[in-house]
Design a protein around this nucleic acid. Structure first.
Lengths: 230, 230
DNA sequence: CCGGTCACTTATGTATACAATGGCCCGGGC
DNA sequence: GCCCGGGCCATTGTATACATAAGTGACCGG
């Protein structure tokens, strides 16, 4: 594996997990030393993160992890709605009914009690996303969705996974999968719309009234004073 | 301006203009020498082009300009429809009515006779796109649309700008702009859908029955044998 | 004569040295 | 005491040297 790939993967993971908080300064020599690579592959990694929108050049001399506020989340979901409704529609037209019937079945039997069950559920969603991409068979759409999903990982950290919402989410996914499996493009699109509406509402409720969790993404005010994990 | 920016801008322009045809091999030392920069900034430029989807690493040793076939164009327009319909809807909800009323007026008076009028028309479309981005005020959507538009520049080279299609395109843009100016989100979205349907049909007609133009993007068969402008 | 293997060439990937620029601090003057 | 200017330092941007691996061609063996 290339050093630049390792640097990218590591930084991406740390940003998504919140270890590198919004506003954290990413100095090239510092990060290169920390990750055990030279500046050249590190710069490539930073370039990819910048193209993803996860870091930005605050000024000519300082690169920081971008912040995510409620407005950003609304914007992100506007794009997500557009792309995922389209994906659901196209998958319903083109997808293998069997694959999505199987997924609908898996969602029907999914549970959310305990960490193991939760991990299984998240893995199931990942499988659903992969099937969706495969069914749509559109590289441009998949690439656009990849960017959205990259940001979503960070956004999800802001939402509290309350059991009620999780149970509803399971049911929503089941409906989407079964609609795609039934070649019902309209239902798939509308069910996706509803699912994303509910998911956004849940996230915004958590953001507007922040949890006491220490992992909450820092607001702009003190963010730029935080340094990367040294 | 940074050397990497110049290299990126130059290569982007050459790919979009077809000077670097699909399949053209982009060797680092060769291109670096040609563009008068060292390999480091050139690699950064190639990385950005790869993230745009304009070049791809065919194997571990060879980077080529990506090809565009009719299937790619259909895929691209699926994403474009999703994003631009959303953009039109959001602009209708949020945009400054005056700005789009002015644009509608400009489209109403636009002409397409002669190269100067055509240049003016393309500039007007660019102005429309900028106003749309400003009205939508969504960085994620703007970024996604930027990628689509980057590819569209190449796709447009495939379409013949026949007068009938151009006249219809003017009218379609006028309707979209006026719908946004009237805060009519539904009409704006549907008019965008119709416009993109017509634009795609026009392009596919040209691609399926290629013109005699020497600038037609080369098919895969002989493409990989072409070298970059040396 | 054909196929396989090894070495060589040439490309990319990485590290490091050099250049240039922007910020910051200190000192002086108003 | 505050503001402005100059010089120093740190950081990014670029070039180049080095490492590594993949592809190619030639040579040897069957």
């Amino acid at each position: 594996m290339r050093a630049s790939d390792r640097a990218y993967a590591t930084l991406l993971d740390e940003i998504q997990r919140g270890l590198l908080a919004p506003g954290a300064v990413l100095a090239e020599v510092e990060q290169a030393t920390r990750l055990g690579v030279s500046r050249t592959p590190l710069r490539e990694a930073l370039g990819r993160l910048a193209s993803d929108g996860l870091v930005a050049q605050q000024s000519a001399r300082v690169t920081v992890v971008t912040a995510v506020d409620a407005g950003d989340i609304r914007e992100l979901f506007e794009v997500r709605r557009a792309l995922e409704e389209t994906a659901a529609r196209l998958a319903a037209e083109r997808g293998d009914p069997r694959a999505f019937a199987d997924l609908a079945d898996a969602f029907a039997h999914a549970t959310i009690d305990g960490q193991d069950a939760l991990d299984d559920y998240y893995a199931l969603i990942a499988r659903f996303d992969r099937q969706l991409d495969a069914a749509v068979a559109n590289d441009y759409l998949t690439a656009a969705l990849r960017t959205v999903r990259t940001h979503l990982v960070r956004v999800r950290r802001l939402a509290r996974d309350n059991p009620g919402r999780l149970a509803a989410s399971v049911a929503e996914h089941r409906l989407i999968a079964s609609a795609i499996g039934a070649h019902d493009a309209e239902l798939a699109a509308h069910a996706t719309h509803v699912h994303l509406h509910n998911a956004l509402a849940n996230i915004l409720a958590a953001v507007d009234e922040p949890a006491e969790s220490a992992t909450t993404l820092a607001p702009f005010g003190n963010a730029h004073t935080r340094k990367g994990a040294a």
